[in-house]
Design a protein around this nucleic acid. Sequence first.
DNA 1: GTGGTCTAGACCACG
DNA 2: GTGGTCTAGACCACA
Lengths: 124, 124, 124, 124
Amino acid sequence: MFITIEPNSQTPIYLQLRRQIVEGIVRGELRPGDPLPSVRQMAVDMGINLHTVNKAYGVLQAEGFVEIFGRRGARVAPAPPRYDEAFLAELRGQLQALYREARSRGVEGELFAALLQEALREAP
Amino acid sequence: MFITIEPNSQTPIYLQLRRQIVEGIVRGELRPGDPLPSVRQMAVDMGINLHTVNKAYGVLQAEGFVEIFGRRGARVAPAPPRYDEAFLAELRGQLQALYREARSRGVEGELFAALLQEALREAP
Amino acid sequence: MFITIEPNSQTPIYLQLRRQIVEGIVRGELRPGDPLPSVRQMAVDMGINLHTVNKAYGVLQAEGFVEIFGRRGARVAPAPPRYDEAFLAELRGQLQALYREARSRGVEGELFAALLQEALREAP
Amino acid sequence: MFITIEPNSQTPIYLQLRRQIVEGIVRGELRPGDPLPSVRQMAVDMGINLHTVNKAYGVLQAEGFVEIFGRRGARVAPAPPRYDEAFLAELRGQLQALYREARSRGVEGELFAALLQEALREAP
DNA sequence: GTGGTCTAGACCACG
DNA sequence: GTGGTCTAGACCACA
């Protein structure tokens, strides 16, 4: 499980970290019950601050992707969180916003569909 | 052309403003050459800060949706910007990110497609 | 609404702050929609660090007592959170633990009841 | 006298250990003068750290539940500690805090009383 | 050594 | 001026 951080990215470091851990879980590289590195270890590995890692772990816990056991470290949660109505509504809204942006620059219909296929194909 | 601002939204006000102007152009309510309200006027109308409007106009100019003539006001650009390679790449990336987020919560395949159809249908 | 912090208390500062804000809401001194001081303002008022206030606000948001609107500040939530099954179970467990502690030192039956009455009477 | 440790609990291990020994005394499974396992033995049995057992024993001694005779082992104190003013004040304070937390989530009056009855009934 | 907490100082985007 | 984010350095309780 490799994680890479882009310090100069627009997206905050803690979200980059979160995303990559989530993707590790989705891809099955991280399995339920697997331990995560300690915040200190992860921080030195990534070359970032301890608090930044801590924040990422906190978000993951709040979302239900990992469990945190005080000084006993953190583990991948036994059951990953599923979607609910709120999540679907949020997702729908973001898809809509993206589509509107696309249309405003002339990306419509088949072109949009093709782009989407491309994106999905590369996703896994 | 009505514009409404949600001060308590997550998305910054200047982006809300930008988006609604773009949509006005896409829908044809604002036509090439149409004048935009002055920064001052818009700020007063919306009850928002002058800097905020300025920033939105700046973004719109950078994107090619409007032209700004110093203190002589701003107008809708004669030809709206089209997509280029960079835009498509960006869009593809965002679609991918959205799809990955969706999958991480168990939204896949047909469910995702259905959601997308729904979003597109409501878009116009 | 007065808030006082005991820096040398066992309970973390951010929890002291959280508790006092919650009590302010319960007592009606803070009403739904009322604005909370900015984290910076609160920090200098209390003589504590900005991040500590931020953490308290974050907890209050997660619990549903307050809403946070980015740079627009924080407000008391329109509807305070109610109890659910998990909360009751937790509460029951804590009451039990407390009673066990009491009994282990000889505090039982009527004495415990009297103590409880005393505590409740002073509570509001 | 069985003792079980939950490594993943929120409450520190040394307090779990302390609590279970106290409860053993309250229930009469451990009688005044009974020897406690050596720190080493207990640590091995529970599969926990030696320091942790030591800390628990230290707390029990400070509270007056056990007597420690250097390397000659520890024993249940001849007379268990009784409550004093300080203990009652502490207890009252904790009951109050718990009640306030309860009220903040809408648990009041009869509901609280019912919950308390439930907790007491299950306690022994 | 580990997480939890606190402080301090800094930069940025936003308004 | 405001919150969001990041870094750095520190102390404590726990194991």
